[in-house]
Computed example of a mutant assay.
Amino acid sequence: MSRIFHEAIWQIDDGLYTPEQKSAWSPKPRSAYHWHKRLTRSRAWLVVDEAIIEASRPICCGFINVETHFKSRGYIDSLYVRPDYQHLGIAHRLYLALEQWSLGQEYPNLTVDASLLSKHLFLTHGFTVQHRSYQEKSGQVFMGFLMSKTLKGLTTS
């Protein structure tokens, strides 16, 4: 997951996020400990390419996770796809799995701080922009969009 996260960020076009912003966002791949802590209070889905074996293991192509505890319940924390697997519908499939599970959990809504890159995907899936959001990382400011989608009333069929 760490490698996917890092590589996906560095693949983003410099017109959306500058090299300085990408360096602040992910200066290097994060530790397994970081990801363990980050995923402790969430549910995650992975897409795996079993046709390609790397070190006797299938390659993880992408992942998504949603927070499951406290006030952040239903907050989509991460959605990243390896650069060589982008534009193949993986992010779409990951999101649909997350939404289906969330419906089964009777979550009333989903929220996400979408990046400039992911905004379109979430709009396609019925999210609406609540407002622009800004985050600061290592002195760099990132503009994004706080988005939400009401699940109440959707069916799980």
Rank of each mutant, 00 (worst) to 15 (best):
P19F: 00
L123Y: 00
D49Q: 03
H36Y: 11
G126A: 11
H131E: 11
Q21V: 02
S133M: 07
A51S: 10
I4L: 01
A51I: 00
W10M: 00
L116T: 05
S56H: 06
K28A: 13
L88Q: 15
L103N: 05
L96A: 09
P108F: 05
R30D: 08
T68Q: 14
C61T: 03
I9A: 00
I90A: 03
L94T: 03
K37C: 12
A97G: 02
K137S: 09
G15F: 06
F145I: 04
L123G: 05
W25P: 05
S31M: 10
K152F: 08
D77M: 02
P108C: 13
L96E: 12
W35G: 09
H92R: 14
G74H: 12
A32N: 03
K71N: 03
Q86M: 13
H120E: 15
G139S: 04
C60Y: 02
E50K: 12
T18G: 06
A24M: 08
F70C: 01
T111V: 05
I53A: 04
Q140H: 13
P58I: 10
E136L: 05
R132F: 05
I59R: 14
P27W: 01
Q130I: 10
P29C: 06
A8R: 01
Q11K: 03
S102K: 06
E20V: 00
S42G: 10
P19G: 03
L154Y: 11
F122E: 04
E136G: 01
L117F: 06
K152V: 04
L46Y: 02
L98P: 04
S133H: 13
E67C: 10
A8W: 01
T128S: 05
H92F: 11
L121C: 05
C60S: 05
P83G: 10
W45L: 08
Y33T: 15
P27H: 03
N65W: 08
T18Y: 06
C60L: 03
L94M: 07
E20M: 02
W35S: 08
Y85C: 01
S56T: 08
V81Y: 02
W10F: 00
I4Y: 00
V47E: 04
A44L: 11
P108L: 12
E50R: 12
Q100L: 13
T124C: 03
F63T: 12
W25R: 06
S157P: 04
L96Q: 14
E54H: 07
R93L: 13
R57Q: 14
M143K: 15
S26N: 08
E20L: 04
G74V: 08
T111E: 13
L88M: 12
K152S: 13
D14M: 04
E136R: 12
H34Q: 04
I53P: 00
S157A: 07
S42V: 03
L146C: 08
H92I: 05
A114L: 05
R43E: 13
S23M: 07
E7T: 10
W25F: 12
A55Y: 11
L16Y: 15
N109F: 09
S78C: 08
K119W: 00
